[in-house]
Design a protein around this nucleic acid. Sequence first.
RNA 1: GCGGGUGUGGUGUAGGGGUUAACACAUCUGGUUGUGGCCCAGAAGAUCGUGGGUUCAAAUCCCACCACUCGCCCCA
Length: 419
Amino acid sequence: MTAIQRATGMQDVLPEDRRYWDFVIDKATDLAQRYGFQHIDVPIIEYTPLFARGMGTASDVFVQKEMYTIEEDDDTSITLRPEFTAGFVRAFIENGMMTWPQPVKLFSIGPIFRRERPQAGRYRQHSQFNAEILGELDPAADLEVMMLAMNLYRELGYKGLTFQLNSTGCPTCKPIYIQALTQYLADQQDKLAAIDKERLSKNPLRVLDSKEPGMDKLLAEAPHIIDHLCADCAAHLADLRGLLEALDQSYTINFRLVRGIDYYTKTVFEVWAEGIGAQAAVCGGGRYDGLAEAIGGPSTPGVGFGSGIERIILGLQEQGIEAPKTPQPTVLVAHFGGETKKTAVTLTYQLRAAGIGARLAFARDKRSLKSQMREANRWGVRTVLILGEDEVAAGMVTVRPLDGGDQTQIPLSDVVTKL
RNA sequence: GCGGGUGUGGUGUAGGGGUUAACACAUCUGGUUGUGGCCCAGAAGAUCGUGGGUUCAAAUCCCACCACUCGCCCCA
């Protein structure tokens, strides 16, 4: 653990990868705005209780263990955000967004922090694209966030995309389902692995995403929540499915996709893509009609999704999708030190001011033209502008194309317009 | 928290008890006057992850730790 080493789970984004970030962020921003979502930024730090919420369930306790929490001298506790949604909802309440035209559609892009063991595409600091619709119960809102997610990956060039869809019910019907599931699993207890027995006692819904062998068959015959939804939740799902079908958007009902905490309601979805290590999901989202109340605000329905930028990029690279190249200066200004350096510096800034990308050859004293030409080649510029004593004396500049064209001399004053 | 894999110049690798730790790429300089790529020559760059142990001798064998990585747990 030396001072000159990245902290665990942190990443440097080097220039050659950074272009993928611009590609993804630009696309996400463009698309979200096309859908009528407004860009917002919320703080990276919030008071801990905003994220701590309900407490009590097994996953909540775990959640707290994986948060970066700082206890301050004045007894307040703050936490690096482990997700976006809570901050959005807090901002909605605190800024009186209930008085804005409803619903409020927001998106943001930025880092979140989770103190977990890193794996492929999962880092302790990672960035998310998050989009949420607050204040709307219409399943068309669910559709909207789903399609925003799906079309993001499509427009980025992803292949092999599928929707995984389910409903997690609501406080009316979910407990009844959990009871039915628990009953079924308890009856089959001798067939469960140790880890699943533990899940059964702590958080039965989690048994549904068990990876233990034999569970596919066992769970296929288990009660499915879709058969236990109350009338309201069933109608919501039916409506959403009808809208997806109207768009000719295929989806797979995945009865193993659920959420264990009460404020998650109705729609749950993921987008899966081929590749990317153990996790197929490139995004997860759903409805949380109980969250605003859970953090002490007025009841406000919400639906949204989050998608990790690093994982999107990993997927792009695995699928062989190229991000656009970063623009590079097309000109290098070479000189021989002394007065020629002054002229070169002046010219370089004139070019830049005129919108032409230009590099200045650096040299404390004089430097061989060969070396400067090599540098030009290495950077891949198209043209070298040479300012030697002769040129400066004559008020000219030598224009040396690197692509095989003829070398010419033009007046210094014409360079900006002739390039 | 648990399990597998891996740690040798900036990067990728070779070397698996013996004296100057090798190679490729990258970097820098030069190949006569002010002209790139290819080529040639040279230079710089490594406490062989860290600490301990075995041995006359450890990059190499043993132990521990650390880091990275893949997966599990969990996934808000």
